[in-house]
Design a binder for these strands. Sequence first.
DNA 1: CCGGTCTAGATTGTATACAATTTAATGGTG
DNA 2: CACCATTAAATTGTATACAATCTAGACCGG
Lengths: 223, 223
Amino acid sequence: MAMNLARSTEPRSEGLVDALREAILTGRYAPGTRLVQDDLAEAFGMSRIPLREALRRLEGEGLVVISPNRGAIVRPLAPKDVVDLYDLRLALEALALRRASERYADLRASTKTRHAQARQAIAARNLTALFRLDRDFHADIAAASDNPHLVAALGAQWSQIMRVMHAYFQAGDYPVDTWDDHEAIADAVAHGEADLAVERMSAHLTGSRDRILASLRGHGDRP
Amino acid sequence: MAMNLARSTEPRSEGLVDALREAILTGRYAPGTRLVQDDLAEAFGMSRIPLREALRRLEGEGLVVISPNRGAIVRPLAPKDVVDLYDLRLALEALALRRASERYADLRASTKTRHAQARQAIAARNLTALFRLDRDFHADIAAASDNPHLVAALGAQWSQIMRVMHAYFQAGDYPVDTWDDHEAIADAVAHGEADLAVERMSAHLTGSRDRILASLRGHGDRP
DNA sequence: CCGGTCTAGATTGTATACAATTTAATGGTG
DNA sequence: CACCATTAAATTGTATACAATCTAGACCGG
């Protein structure tokens, strides 16, 4: 008989952290949004105790800012954050690529699969699904580095980037050649060519960053 | 009249997070130690509610691991963590050095001051003070990068390194030329020579890492 | 002696209730 | 009208109490 996989013994605050994180990453709770405990507790159907714990958890992850006696807000994002985040991100991705290249990690097949899925997501104008596929590709590289601390750093990193994308991106802004870049990077890694992979990643990220910054300006000028 | 600077309105859990973090970083709560809520609550003179929030915060920072219904422990450390952490750390420090070098940040004076203080700490066999001075030097470099996200990543990074050092280091293991390295790095940054600074940092960190690994082996063999 | 079941104690998870603080609104005063 | 006290409402902070779960040891059949 099939065992019931839904662990009913899981504490309330566990699933809550994931739900809140998801809402923040997808922009449903936009940067700067106040997170009022009573409201959230009612929305999620529990008391404020587990809710407060979830907020502390997310504070530790850098997604939420809590001011004593004043409450919590979704951590704000400024244009400079975009520049700083991409600068940091390139350093982390470069390290991941070097380590993955050393072991000739082969991500070509899974990348091709994701590429196909991404095409569908683009056709369906499903930005959230698109970003998730993007994240999955980069998460695979991180995992291939075999360095859990690097994985964690890139994860925190990516959470912020995800917020940036949902905050500043428009559907039309998604570059069509993103996944060609990804496949080229996967190729370089599979052949152990670390420098080439890093170079390609650098171009990829710079393009992505500049597109976000441009989109930001375009919408920041007129109210 | 001088205003009382001790903000009595500060919530209990604020200072608590700092106290717990300090205890973990200095090894007073060693890796793997169980953190029983009742005991800690009594030790800090408060109920379990603010204590649990502090634990969630530290979970988010990666210092504590919480298992549902089983409780919290100080995050364990394995030898591989030392290798992984230093690998990641070099990438982060290198980025910080490049950004600091671009702006010719001059940390020579403060480094010299810390060097003198470090000599006193060595004489007093005060490892905790010594590590803190070390951290301050690296924190200065991070701050000079003018990238708050990099500062945060290096901070999280350093917390883990601090735990490693307190866990595996012996008083005699502290290398006497650490601060000569630091001054040489500060020199390179002040002259804008990023590559040289990174090279020196690389040597510095490699030496530090290998000393920890050696110390680890030396004590891991015999019980 | 080994493995399994059962129960008591220890420990974690959370709702409720109330205290403390901040925020917003009100009204007076120059 | 601007400015500042005063107060009510909204919101956060935490202690208490109890429910849910896990752990360890006793007990028992093999």
